[in-house]
Computed example of a mutant assay.
Amino acid sequence: MTEVTDLGEFGDDFRRNPHPVYERLRRSGPVHRVRPPSPDARYDTWLVVGHEEARAALADPRLAKDPSGLGMTFLDEELIGKHLLVTDPPRHTRLRALVSRAFTMRRVEELRPRIRRITDDLLDAMLPHGRGDLVESFAHPLPLTVICELLGVPEMDRAEFRKISTEAVAPTNEESEYDAFVELAAYLTDLIEDKRCSGPSGDLLSDLIRTTDEDGDRLSAEELRGMAFVLLIAGHETTVNLITTGVHALLSHPGQLDTLRADLSLVDGAVEEALRWDGPVENATFRYAAEPLEIDGTPIARGDAVMVGLTAADRDPDRYPDPDRFDIRRDTRGHLAFGHGVHYCLGAPLARLEARTAIRTLLERAPGLALDGPPGDWLPGMLMRGMRSLPVRW
């Protein structure tokens, strides 16, 4: 009988700082059977905490993202439809190719001046107050505004969308999660239909509706809803957490903050270290063993759920010496904050651009930035890694 570690037994300490638990697990091996804390405690899962093993698992085609072949379906798939996070090649390859035709590197780069303008506008409103909540005033509205403008979400819908999306990715209970997905599905269906009827408008969602490949293939209505879901949710929730935890890490390490303030050209390294040290996605979404396999000698049965620990892997001392030290000059190459393999995060270039712009501009315009008390509650569950509020003064 495999020993099961009940992560819920570690209480709120695990939510605030899971790294000591992951370190303890890692010392006895890279793969463990665990029971996630509520509300994720629906079934036991394998958890991969070693860097080499996690990187291999993320690229292993035997670990499927689509559980339907095993007779399983889940909430987001039932209500939203098939999307990039719950499909495997060849369907995943087709979906990613279609979205990549519209969501290009050139399109991301063209957003640079607009991201700087939004950043400055938010700071213009925030800085006269002298103190405030960085999440509410800055870290949340910046990526939310960017992704909503990119996809063409009306401004009057954004506050409600923020509330629903946060509950979908970090649910407080199963009932609220279900309600959030129902609302999201209805909203996205209406949004897509409005754009289909109104004709081309230059936003990404309108372009996706009309995108075709060389053979005339295009996204179905269900696939469009799934794509809009992934882009909207992943396109802002993760970046909110990256900006917030990145700033928190800097303000909690004054020596590193002084180094960055003295040379803001180090901001790229600071963002990469923030991604490695306490990235915005704690664990990749579930994979399922499509056939019996082994991970580092641990047998995984067909149908077993596998959770790949991204933040756990990125604190593996076999990959990063002294991994608990936050060091903006560290060589962070190979970190797994954006995943690895065919499911590597499509929005990584946009997230990096927003985080670099946000942190650099914030430090330029608020040289006295400092913590103004402890952070608010950390998000529940094991998917997202972030805090609901961060009091700061400047």
Rank of each mutant, 00 (worst) to 15 (best):
M1A: 14
T2D: 15
E3P: 02
E3A: 15
E9A: 15
F10A: 14
F14E: 08
R15F: 13
R15K: 05
Y22S: 06
P30T: 02
H32Q: 04
H32W: 03
R33K: 07
S38L: 04
R42E: 15
D44P: 04
D60S: 04
K65G: 08
L70C: 11
F74K: 06
L79G: 06
K82S: 14
D88Q: 05
T93Y: 09
T93H: 12
V99M: 14
A102H: 01
A102I: 04
E110A: 15
P113V: 12
R114V: 05
I115E: 00
M126R: 01
G130V: 05
G130L: 07
D133Q: 10
A139R: 02
P141N: 06
L144T: 07
V153A: 12
M156Y: 11
D157M: 02
E167Q: 15
A168G: 09
N173P: 00
E175F: 07
V182G: 05
D194K: 14
R196I: 03
S201E: 14
D203M: 10
S206Y: 03
T211V: 15
D217M: 06
I233M: 10
E237A: 11
E237I: 12
H248G: 08
H248V: 00
P254Q: 10
R276C: 09
G279D: 13
A290P: 04
D296W: 01
M307F: 01
H343A: 13
R360Y: 03
R360N: 05
T361G: 09
L363Y: 07
E364F: 03
A370F: 01
G373Y: 12
M387N: 03
R388W: 09
L390T: 10
